[in-house]
Design a binder for these strands. Structure first.
Lengths: 186, 186
DNA sequence: CACGACATGATACACCTTGTCTCATGTGAG
DNA sequence: CTCACATGAGACAAGGTGTATCATGTCGTG
């Protein structure tokens, strides 16, 4: 991995930013070499040099946009509060632009290996964070449960996902609290 | 609504079937007027006559394929068994081709009104079936719960959705049983 | 600073897809 | 059988794709 030039970094950043706007405004079909180049005020050939395949550009876009803050391990004292904060962060990310990226990732992963990798990385990371919080709570004695942590993650994350990604209903703080209490028995 | 010709019906069926294969094999980007026409052995102009917009064809495809059996109200005696059967049917449908259609619908709904309608119709129907089963169980005395039925549907359906659509982990009968017992307290 | 390596802009090219049109031919309902 | 209408076949302009070339611009290094 050679570290890219300043010029290269600047160009990539400009292109990605333009592509990001295009994706957000007009959807994945609008992210073509031509339109991205025009929006970024960059030669079309330049876009081809960096991303010979349109799909690579889309994957880059989704990975850079959807990855970092989705399930960041939150600070806090007891396990319940930390889990609550993690779920709140997740639900905040699910609606809005990040939710759209996630849905796009889910759909494209069915037909394209590159999207599948990105999907696995992101969902895997999120799952790992929650599993970690649960195990930490069990070790510290804050939580007592019989099921595997993975099963509990399903039960905690699932309702939020269904509600925001499928039903387009809001998820607020009371909803999360009653969910956590019901699942974790706190 | 005029009832279409025999010729028209035949053509539409052939085109839809070819488009279906294309979607399943190569994904949504492959469903273009040209490729569908070639696969269906039909003139390209004919496809344009029936579906002037490529998106209409995709929506048609997803609605016809994804709608009917997703959450069919199952027969059975007690509420727990019926809900279990409904969830089992749903989880069977989530992986495989129907799951892909659902994910595609979710993603495209963010940028296209027509997909959004189809998504709302399908998810709404599914939710209604489960809510109905819960209310029926409450009336018959099989089930006792304090939350709204919608909240319980989130908790029942959510884990299954997350597990099959996000994590790509299998959902088997014991998983469903322990889920139902945990959520409904049976 | 000056040089050299390399990224970019500009342009050209052949090829493919799209959307629309026209007209001859085929098909089915009455 | 006949006529309305659906389809097939092909033409067409417009525009997107992918690749190549070369002059120009930008940066890192000596």
């Amino acid at each position: 991995m050679t570290v890219p030039n300043r010029q290269v970094r600047r160009t990539r950043a400009r292109v990605l930013e333009a592509a990001h706007r295009l994706l957000a405004d007009e959807g994945p079909d609008a992210v073509t070499h031509l339109r991205v180049a025009e929006a970024a005020d960059v030669a079309r050939a330049t876009v081809y040099r960096h991303w010979p395949d349109r799909i690579d550009l889309l994957v880059d876009l989704l990975e850079s946009g959807a990855s970092p803050p989705v399930f960041e391990p939150p600070p806090g004292d007891d396990a319940r509060a930390r889990i609550l904060a993690a779920l709140g962060r997740a639900s905040n990310n699910f609606d809005g632009e990040l939710g759209r990226s996630l849905r796009l990732l889910l759909a494209r992963a069915d037909w394209d290996e590159r999207f599948a990798h990105a999907k696995a990385a992101i969902t895997g990371a999120g799952r790992a964070v929650l599993v970690g919080l649960l195990e930490e709570g069990r070790r510290s004695g804050d939580l007592v449960f019989e099921e595997t942590p993975e099963v509990l993650v399903d039960r905690l994350l699932g309702p939020i996902v269904v509600r925001s990604l499928l039903f387009d209903d809001p998820v607020d703080e009371p909803y999360l609290e009653s969910l956590v209490d019901a699942i974790l028995g706190t």
